[in-house]
Structures are given as structure tokens and as C-alpha cells.
Amino acid sequence: MKKLKSLTKTLQKAKLSNTSFIPKELLHRLILGKIREHSSYFITQHDLRSINLIGNVALIWSIPLFILFYYLTNRNIIIAVVLSVAMIIAFLFVSGDHVRSKILIRRQEFDEIAFLIINSLSINMLSTQSFPMSVELLTNDNINNEHYQKYFQEILYKSNLGENEDTIIQDGGKMFLSDRYRHIFQNIKRERTFIDSDPEFLLRVKRQAALIEDNIVIFIAVTCLLPLVLSLVLALIMPQDSLSILLLPLIYALFGSYILRYIQNKNFGVQNG
């Protein structure tokens, strides 16, 4: 563990995490996918850096892997290339998925407290009667959630620069996934914008729990049967030292992370609606 940490540290020192050998656009699209659209505010610099790091580590590892497989397969170039590419893609997917789900958890946490932000903004609006002032009050206290604090500071910065307040408020609403919250935020300047009840939340959470329950059944069916069958097949039809054995668990890795991703997207799709 210590070795790994020191390795990542040295890699960071070498600025491996700042620049990416794989085109950034492609890498981010591959790993982040749809969440780039709906939760872009929650993707921190750190996440992007770790994605770059994952891409670079994968690329660097591909060379020794290729050499290893080249000699292990008795200098068969095609199999060596296929194996090392499969290894790297599986690594990219599984570790990219880790970063991705972290962002999604952050997003969900924000959604759960969004009503408090809007309500306090509305109280601030009542007492100060000015939008920039109330945003300033919102960001002033030592709130430990840096993501939306940064977001509101940006709003404050924009309004200090003298941009049109209404357009800022219109754009600012995009932060909220729920239509109702967005609407309330965009009408914050009116007197009566305040969340006093939240029937949608109950429905949403219930639907979400039901979705997890349904998906767990599917997922268990896949994750239980597939590795079991896979391991039996592996044991029966392959000789012990054939390298093509390594391809099958990697296919499983791709398959599994795709299912996981699908379920996460579905979870958020429901929240959107």
C-alpha cells in the first residue's frame, strides 16, 4: 500500500496526472459518459486528474504487459497485442468506474440537501432584498461542502462583474436536477418562493429504493451465474497455462462495469423525471 502511494506520488510529481497521453476528450467521454452533462459541477479537478492518471498508468503498463505476453506466447504478436489491449481496457473501465461512482454519490448528497440551500437563500432574500448579498451570506459561513460553495462563489463573482442578474439566476438553476427546485430557484426574487413541502422527494426515494431492489435481482442473477459458469468453463476447456484464459475474466470485467454503469444511469434517469 505504501509502495502504491509513493508510486502515485512520484507520478503526480512527474505531472503525469496533469497531462494525458490519451486524448483527454476521448478519455473523459469513455469514463464519465453521460454524467458530464448533468453533473458537471460536481466533477472536481481532482477527479479529472485521477482520470488522467488512470489513462496514463494504463498506457505505461501496456508496454511491459505487451513484452511479457510477447515472450509468454512464444512471440505471437497478435495474441500479445489482443491480451494487453484487453487488460488495459478492463483496467480503464473498472478503475474509471470507481471515480465515476464517487461523483454520482456527491451529486446525490447534494440533491438530498438542495431544499435547505434554496430555503436559506429565500430567507436571506427576505432579509437583504438583494440577490448577490444573499448569495454572499450563503457562502460566508464555513460550509464544508466545497462543490456548491464554489458554484455560488462563481455566481457571486459574475454578479460582481456586473452581469445581468436575471440571466445569472436563470443559468444558476441548472444546478438543480429536480424541475421543481430549478423553477423555485429561478423565481427566487419573487416574494413567495419557498419550499414548504416536498411530495416529490418521497416518491423519488421510494422509486429509487424499488429500482435498487429490482436491479439487485438482475445483477445477482448476472454476477452469480456468470462468474460461476465462467470459472467452470475456464477449468474444463482450457489447459492450465494457455494465456487466452486471461481474456475471459477481462471480458467479465467489461461486462460487469457496463451493467453497473447502466444501473447508475437508470437511477439518475429516474431522478431527472
Binding site: 445483477f219 454476477t223 470459472s231 475456464l234 486471461l246 475471459l248 462495469s257 453497473l260
Partner: peptide, 26 residues
């Protein structure tokens, strides 16, 4: 041979399976 490619891939399958199941419920 205990340290064969086969046993490595078994270990991989097992780790991946557990990883996915753990990740499912965060």
C-alpha cells in the same frame, strides 16, 4: 502447478465479482 495462469484468472474473477457486488450498494 499452483501458480498457473488459470489460478491467477480465478483470483481475478473472484475479486471482480466481489467488487461489483460491493459497488452495487455503495
Amino acid at each position: 502447478t499452483f501458480f498457473s495462469v488459470l489460478s491467477i484468472s480465478f483470483l481475478l474473477v473472484n475479486i471482480l465479482n466481489n467488487y461489483f457486488l460491493l459497488k452495487m450498494v455503495n
